[in-house]
Nucleic acid binder design. Structure first.
Lengths: 295, 295
DNA sequence: ATTAATATATAGGTTAAAGCTATAAGTTAA
DNA sequence: TTAACTTATAGCTTTAACCTATATATTAAT
């Protein structure tokens, strides 16, 4: 099967005769007949009921018509989109980012937009696991993440290591603490990120450092939800430095964790086997510089 | 551009080297290189960044990958579906029917299912105009309709002529009438089908017979809505015989229109230039017989 | 630095298939 | 019966997909 044959078939459906279709396709009528014959042989069923006066579609032909239509449409789209791409070079940059880091985007995006006003930035919020998958599927150009595993298809560029904090309800005993050590956390109820998010791994690591398993009351994928649950008194949660720096912090206590070696590494991750256009590299560097400046 | 080339491209993406991909495709490495080169020339952009050690996708390559994926998927589907069709011959029959006639379907479908238990019947309710369009697009095999125009691509098989009735609110003066003549309708408020439905044309014809233009209070596409509006006292409506025969009739008055030559013709319509399989012809005959039996 | 290994690209010839012209065979309408 | 129109067949030509052999380029190891 062949797009060319599909187009031939389509033309016959449109013009209702082989002869007319062949003319419009700029091929001879015998060639067209022969191609349709080959196609029918390959599919194992007759597509047209031919008489000398009229050509009609068989049931199989109708089905085939319905099946090839999206292919022909998509083929046209390919030519158009590749043409667009040639002119602009790059239409949009897709970036993956952890929910805890979205707050630092405005500054970076502003910087990027100044240099590349015509390139759109698409932001995809997701956890560490999904970010690696998205990169491998070429859905995003680069990601800012805290890796929980390492893929050989990706490059990991460390940019920062975040301190960790505890957020607690306003009336929680922790409100009087100036800082927290890991052993203070024993016996507390926790709100945690779900599987595939690095903060979950961090929580487990921190607790295992103090020698206990955390009592996780609730798991979710959105930082805002965690904040609401903490405020409402369901438990305490671990959050990273950048969340504290940029998020609204009223109605809850924020206490730093000290005397722990555990930090949350932030990496920019990119595909190894992908050639990136300049704007993407620039964006990567803006991220990198941002962390150097603010640390 | 060519599905074969798309498959070649896809294989290189998958196996990351030309040599490996060529092996899996059962062609030589130079042939594969040449094909990709041709493809790149046609598209006007480079798809791979090649070094001897690694092959990486360019931005254009990523885009191309995303664009061809649906085509490759659809191609597989074509082979599968055409294979299925060969075995079963016909998987489903699509019929178009007027909303006013759906009530007579159960009996006909039962009859059809007895003979063809493995063929599904898809029912599409629509107005006369849409039914002709659907037939011409091969979306339905046959339609039961009351034609408001005649297309040279369709065959029209008259099967019945319906009497016409008026439905009116329960407290409407018509409730005492044993029958209605067209002149009785002067000055009434009407609920009508919208453009493209034959009952709208019928209403206009009936009123013009009595020499006036109807005052249409509300237009809609669903018979059930019309019934509700009539019951709630918004106006009266013309309905055909088969609606009266099979629909629930409480909470409103139903009065026959007499001394009018106007009937509502019911036709089975089919494509002229389409080869129909036997089950469709049988279904057509079931419709035909049904009307002979019940008239 | 040199060499071995491994990758893609190029050159030139072979083969398969898509194309052509000419003509046959079938159908409809005058 | 014939003229006009259709699709199908026969046989040849041309295009392009494919091959092998070899060149070129890069990496890794000696």
């Amino acid at each position: 099967m062949d797009i060319r044959q599909m187009k031939y078939f389509h033309a016959i459906v449109k013009y209702k005769t082989f002869t007319k279709a062949a003319q419009l396709l700029h091929i001879s009528q015998p060639s067209l007949s022969s191609q349709i014959k080959d196609l029918e042989k390959e599919l194992g069923c007759v597509l047209f009921e031919r008489t000398t006066k009229i050509v009609s579609l068989t049931e199989a032909g109708i089905n085939f018509l319905k099946l090839i239509t999206p292919i022909l449409e998509q083929e046209n789209r390919i030519y158009q989109e590749m043409e667009d791409l040639k002119e602009i070079g790059l239409k949009k940059v897709n970036i993956g980012i952890l929910p805890s880091q979205v707050f630092l985007l405005p500054k970076i995006i502003l910087q990027f937009k100044k240099k590349y006003p015509n390139i759109a930035i698409n932001i995809f919020e997701m956890g560490s696991k999904d970010m690696e998958k998205s990169l491998e599927k070429y859905d995003i150009h680069l990601g800012l993440t805290s890796p929980i595993s390492y893929s050989k298809f990706l490059t990991y560029l460390p940019v920062y290591e975040e301190e960790l904090f505890i957020i607690a309800p306003f009336d929680h005993p922790f409100k009087t603490y100036s800082h927290i050590t890991t052993s203070d956390l024993i016996g507390q109820d926790f709100i945690s990120y779900k599987e595939g998010y690095s903060l979950r791994e961090i929580l487990l690591k921190v607790c295992s450092e103090a020698g206990f398993k955390p009592n996780i009351m609730y798991e979710c994928g959105r930082l805002e939800t965690i904040r609401q649950l903490v405020i409402s008194g369901m438990g305490i949660a671990i959050v990273p430095e950048n969340y504290i720096r940029f998020a609204i912090s009223d109605k809850m206590s924020i206490i730093k964790i000290v005397k722990s070696d555990i930090r949350r590494p932030l990496n920019i991750i990119m595909s190894k086997d992908r050639h990136y256009p300049k704007p993407v590299h620039d964006l990567k560097n803006y991220f990198f510089d941002f962390f150097i400046e603010t640390s």
